[in-house]
Amino acid sequence: MLTHLQKLEAESIHIMREVAAEAENPVMLYSIGKDSAVMLHIAMKAFFPATPPFPLLHVDTTWKFREMIEFRDATVSTLGLDLIVHINEEGVEQGIGPFSHGSAVHTDVMKTTALKQALEKHGFDVAFGGARRDEEKSRAKERIFSFRSEDHRWDPKNQRPELWKIYNTRKSPGESIRVFPLSNWTELDIWQYIWLEKIPIVPLYYAAERPVVERDGTLIMVDDDRMPIRPEEQVEYRKVRFRTLGCYPLTGAVESSADTLTAIIQEMLLTKTSERQGRVIDHDQAASMEKKKQEGYF
């Protein structure tokens, strides 16, 4: 009798092999976070002794934590994988950034638009993403194989029925598919699997003394000197960690002393706010994620 994690792992492997066999030009979106770490780990298992027959794609907004980039490069070189890094150069030329333009514009230009650019530039027809159905209400209805129209939009009312584990991967010209092999994992499953399989994760998940400022009730880490410090603000060192990772100006730190994996899981289980609260982009109205997804945000 398999345990729940063994079943979830086997299901994810099955999904990845289906994509590898049927897609023309697949890619794995690698965001460097814990879900990506699990997805990548499973991809290594799915094709062993071969390496995964697709490259990784990181959409770099140029505002990621420096430790994330170091971790990314180290991981890719250890595993011997192909990595494509895409930056929206037009956005860079226009000087788009979270401080100057706010989170909405920054995310739209440097993340959503950049992702579309990258997929189109390389002609990827299928992209793996690490999203889970338990993350957020609208995700609960998304298929494992989720179709996007030519302009990368998601139509929640027109999804293909997905029966058994038979995936219909056929698409019309211009359409692309997002595939979510971790659909049925929960946040606890992810952490438990990382613990069980000893999967390396970015050190930012562990508590450490880090320079932060408190801004609008959120602790923002001063990761480089692009961050403008307001007159009333003070940079102070506090023992903090991150529950999710993204652009450093948009990712709130939490004060914590959890500096081991088990302590993180313990804290996660005892904590009283759900995962996405740390992300500044979700703080608008309730249906925000559904709207973003229809527009092509992953």
């Binding site: 729940h4 159905r133 338990d134 209400k137 609208s138 609960a140 209805k141 929640p156 009312k157 999804q159 659909s183 049925n184 929960t186 606890l188 309730a286 249906a287 559904e290 709207k291």
Partner: peptide, 21 residues
């Protein structure tokens, strides 16, 4: 109740998956 359009209409229109343990 997941999708915004459903919440307005007060109906569930599609298969959703829920998790608990």
């Amino acid at each position: 109740d997941g999708l915004a359009s459903e919440r307005e209409q007060g109906i569930t229109i599609d298969v959703a998956y829920r998790f608990f343990s």
